[in-house]
C-alpha cells in the first residue's frame, strides 16, 4: 500500500500541499482529481523524490520514500510518468525504452529483453519505428513511449501525471484501457492524476479529490462520480 500521511509541501503560492493524507491500495487504480493548481503534480513529484516535502511521510510497502533520491525510488518499484509526454526527443524510440531498463541490466538481463519486447507488444505503434528519433512521434505516441519507459522498469506502482493532457479522446481511451488492463491482469498498482475527472473515475476503484492542496473527498470512485454537488463545487461541472 502507498500510504501518504500529513504531507505538506511548499511550492508556489498555489499548487502546494497542505497536510494531505490518503492511501492507494495494491492492485487497484486510485485516482487523484482536482482543478488546475490543486497540487496534483506536486503530489506525484514529491512521491517520486523530485520535490522535498516540508513534513509528512510517504511509505510504499512499509518503506519510507521521503528523503530517498528519485533514482532510488524508481529502483524501489515506484515509477512516475511525468506530465507532458516526458520522453527524450533526441534519443530513438528504442533508446527511450531501454533507458528505463538500464538499472536492471546487471541483475536481470534476460528479463530486460523480455520486458522491452512486451512494451512493443503493448504499444504496436512504437514497434515499427524503433530506430527513429522519438521527436518524430505524435503526441499520443510520445505519451505511450513515456509510459513504456516507465513500465519497462517493471514497477510495482505506476504514477501517471495527466496522461490525457492534450490528446485526442480516442487515444486517451486506448492509453487508459492499457493501464486498466495492466492493473486487472498483472496486479499493477496505479496512482492516476487527472484533471479530466470523468475519464479517471470511470476506470478507477478509488478517488481522491484535491482542492487548493487539501483533500476534500476520499472515497470509492463510484460514489465520487455520483456526487454531483461535490463535482460542481470543485470541478465546475
Amino acid at each position: 500500500m502507498l500510504k501518504i500521511e500529513n504531507l505538506t509541501v511548499n511550492f508556489d503560492a498555489n499548487s502546494a500541499l497542505d497536510n494531505v493524507s490518503f492511501s492507494a491500495e495494491v492492485g487497484k487504480i486510485t485516482t487523484v482529481i482536482g482543478a488546475n493548481g490543486a497540487g496534483k503534480s506536486t503530489l506525484l513529484r514529491t512521491i517520486s523524490g523530485l520535490k522535498a516535502p516540508k513534513s509528512g511521510s510517504i511509505t510504499w510497502r512499509d518503506s519510507e520514500l521521503v528523503g530517498m533520491r528519485p533514482e532510488a525510488i524508481v529502483r524501489a518499484g515506484v515509477a512516475l510518468v511525468p506530465e507532458g509526454h516526458a520522453v527524450i526527443p533526441e534519443l530513438t524510440i528504442d533508446e527511450n525504452i531501454r533507458m528505463g531498463a538500464l538499472f536492471r541490466l546487471r541483475k536481470a538481463k534476460s528479463d530486460v529483453t523480455t520486458a522491452i519486447a512486451e512494451m512493443y507488444e503493448l504499444f504496436p505503434q512504437l514497434a515499427d519505428r524503433r530506430k527513429a528519433p522519438s521527436s518524430t512521434l505524435s503526441g499520443g505516441e510520445r505519451q505511450m513511449l513515456a509510459i513504456a519507459r516507465a513500465l519497462v522498469s517493471r514497477p510495482e506502482i505506476l504514477l501517471l501525471d495527466e496522461p490525457s493532457l492534450g490528446l485526442a479522446p480516442l487515444i486517451v481511451k486506448q492509453i487508459i484501457g492499457i493501464i486498466e488492463e495492466l492493473c486487472r491482469k498483472s496486479g499493477l498498482t496505479v496512482l492516476l492524476v487527472e484533471q479530466n475527472a470523468n475519464t479517471a473515475l470511470d476506470v478507477a476503484d478509488h478517488g481522491v479529490l484535491l482542492a487548493l492542496g487539501k483533500v476534500v473527498a476520499d472515497r470509492p470512485a463510484k460514489d465520487l462520480r455520483a456526487d454531483v454537488s461535490l463535482r460542481e463545487a470543485y470541478l465546475g461541472y
Binding site: 528519485p70 511525468p82 520522453v87 527524450i88 533526441e90 538499472f103 516507465a150 522498469s153
Partner: peptide, 19 residues
C-alpha cells in the same frame, strides 16, 4: 545511453532509475 540521457534530460533520466 545513460550518459546521453543524463545530459539531455536529467529529470527523465533520474525517473528512469539512472544514477
Amino acid at each position: 545511453l545513460a550518459m546521453r540521457a543524463s545530459a539531455l534530460n536529467m529529470e527523465v533520466a533520474r525517473l528512469s532509475g539512472i544514477r
